[in-house]
Nucleic acid binder design. Sequence first.
DNA 1: TTTTGTTGATTGATCAGTCAATTAAAAATA
DNA 2: TATTTTTAATTGACTGATCAATCAACAAAA
Lengths: 197, 197
Amino acid sequence: MPKIGMEPLRRKALIDATISTIGERGTLNVTVAEIAGRAGVSSALAHHYFGPKEELLQATMRQLLADLGRDTVSALRGAATPRERVSAVITVNFNAGQFREETVHAWLAFYVEAQNSPLLRRLLRVYARRLHSNLMSGLLPLTSRPEAERMAEAIAALIDGLYIRRALRDGLPNPASATSLVEDYVDAKLERQANAP
Amino acid sequence: MPKIGMEPLRRKALIDATISTIGERGTLNVTVAEIAGRAGVSSALAHHYFGPKEELLQATMRQLLADLGRDTVSALRGAATPRERVSAVITVNFNAGQFREETVHAWLAFYVEAQNSPLLRRLLRVYARRLHSNLMSGLLPLTSRPEAERMAEAIAALIDGLYIRRALRDGLPNPASATSLVEDYVDAKLERQANAP
DNA sequence: TTTTGTTGATTGATCAGTCAATTAAAAATA
DNA sequence: TATTTTTAATTGACTGATCAATCAACAAAA
């Protein structure tokens, strides 16, 4: 039953299946056959469209990054003040879309895989740099550059750390509490600066 | 050349080899043969002493936890005040012994693997609980219980997050800067409480 | 001679990746 | 319009490689 123009649909289905498979199993050790099966096609077709497995994984990671990027841009659009920009960046990362258990597991698995795969590593650095610069754009008007750098680093670490903890314990930090934890850090730092300059 | 009493030596050598192999390769996807080879024995011997591979991994994780636990106890012994207890816990985690790239990679890999293995998961929770309670013992005399809980959660997330970032970028957060980042958070929080109770 | 240490060889399972073959839609040709 | 040809979609069957795990056999210490 070959319909024409299936390629984009299949690619998307395969990438989605990759995320959900990795998310459910909590590891990148998933077979192409399982992913393909979940997407409703044969493993041969997955290889037909993506070539080696590694490429499917890379495409999946790009999708995750693209989703996060889109959400971030959209959130920043609504931020009027620098402080709001910082909040927007924080909120996006604990969004319903990003902070799903499935997605969190996938991120974590990719972090590990990035240790071996230069390309995945590069993709992750793109994400890290983007996060950093988004945070800096909000922080620089609020404090000195060294302090802003330090805060951006801490916020990024808090986000990553809360992801890990979310993956480990079953959902202990929910989106709201995770967000408030990071916001609380930002407030504490800014207040201290206001009180004792 | 079978000397007697080799078992403990071989076990230790195999566990050490497991850590360094995982650390270097950055993944738990290492073969028993490679680990055994690094320990200077055959893969058959590894199975002889540990049975299935999973058990070797568990033993390795227990070793990592035990090392961290030992370091922590020793660091806490020298802490006179509650605030010093908090510092001691933080410092230990970014210790030369714990924060080696090899160890960091191994921890990260185990975090991922814990998603599938109930036993590894349980071991990680032991670590998390111990960290939490150690932090609380220092924080409770300094602030209210809810605030202490929140701070302990944030400190733990910061530690985990800095580990991840260490694994990703090549060594950006060195022990000293990682420590000072977390200490800075603690100071900011405590000062805020002192200023506006 | 019993126990402990040790390994080479082997087995069985799992998987990524390939390929030839099949179907049907689309395009070209008559 | 009717046909032939090309192209896209799809898979089952297969191959080759990798590895965990086993086992029989051997060496040396007790």
